[in-house]
């Protein structure tokens, strides 16, 4: 063994090939089967995609680095299930490019946050967390409420998502901008298109309290309110959740 190595270390190409070879094995064995073993991602026929407004909100979540403090992954541990709700399933992040599971909980897990609090609370909390939770160490994001949401490129966003595998239809892509307005303006004519394309259960509300303005706050709150609600596959009580076949 040492004799072989003694020869190897005098050949730079050999050394390079050996390093690449040895270092490739682990990743191949662990990652490739995640695409071939079907049990990896559970079936959830009623899984819906993010609306353009929710997607824009998700991108704000990414932009602001919320993942640095919040996880979106409830582990299969008793205390997490009892605190946050049913453990997260793989299918729930099937359309998440990228995933936002997180690695640090400076703040609580958000995987089951959707509809836990009211829109008003979220707006107040984002404008100044310490106004509603005096102990909070979360930054204030007051500017979100006064920044207009950029919507002109939402069609491009949906299109890029479709290219990486999210089933957006042509209709959804063509109407992305209008749907973003509609979802935050319940009384506007654009609102109907949202429920038509994304389902009756889609929440159409003036998320930031101002139906005639489409702000980044609208988008972020719309996203926070959908967390954990894209499918109800995970909402069977844990104690009766059966093993995947």
């Amino acid at each position: 063994m040492f004799g072989f190595h003694y020869r190897l270390e005098s050949k730079s190409i050999g050394l390079v090939l050996a390093i690449v070879g040895v270092a490739s094995i682990g990743g191949i064995v662990e990652i490739a089967p995640l695409f071939t073993i079907h049990q990896t991602v559970e079936a959830a026929p009623n899984m819906r995609v993010y609306t353009p407004l929710e997607l824009a909100g998700r991108n704000i979540y990414i932009r602001e680095g919320c993942y640095a403090c919040h996880s979106q992954m409830i582990r299969t541990l008793r205390d997490e299930v009892e605190r946050y709700g049913p453990y997260s399933l793989a299918v729930e992040s099937k359309y998440d490019h990228p995933h936002l599971w997180g690695s640090k909980r400076t703040g609580p897990d958000l995987a089951r946050l959707g509809e836990k609090y009211s829109d008003e609370w979220h707006v107040a909390h984002m404008i100044n967390p310490r106004a509603v939770v005096p102990e909070s160490v979360m930054p204030a994001y007051a500017w979100l409420a006064r920044t207009e949401l950029r919507t002109d490129d939402l069609g491009d966003h949906l299109n890029a998502e479709r290219r990486v595998g999210v089933p957006y239809t042509d209709d959804m892509i063509a109407n992305a901008t209008a749907d973003a307005y509609g979802q935050a303006a319940p009384d506007s004519p654009a609102a109907d298109g949202v429920t038509k394309r994304y389902g009756k259960a889609t929440t159409v509300r003036a998320f930031d309290g101002k139906p005639n303005e489409l702000t980044e706050m609208d988008a972020l709150v719309a996203y926070l309110q959908i967390l954990g609600r894209l499918t109800d596959a995970a909402h069977k009580p844990v104690a009766t959740a059966e093993k995947q076949p």
């Binding site: 662990e30 990652i31 995640l34 695409f35 990896t40 991602v41 793989a90 299918v91 729930e92 992040s93 099937k94 359309y95 998440d96 490019h97 990228p98 995933h99 599971w101 966003h157 890029a160 998502e161 990486v164 595998g165 999210v166």
Partner: peptide, 11 residues
């Protein structure tokens, strides 16, 4: 948008 999603993306 990353090529992979969810569990494969996380891994």
């Amino acid at each position: 948008y990353s090529l992979f999603s969810g569990v494969q993306d996380a891994m």
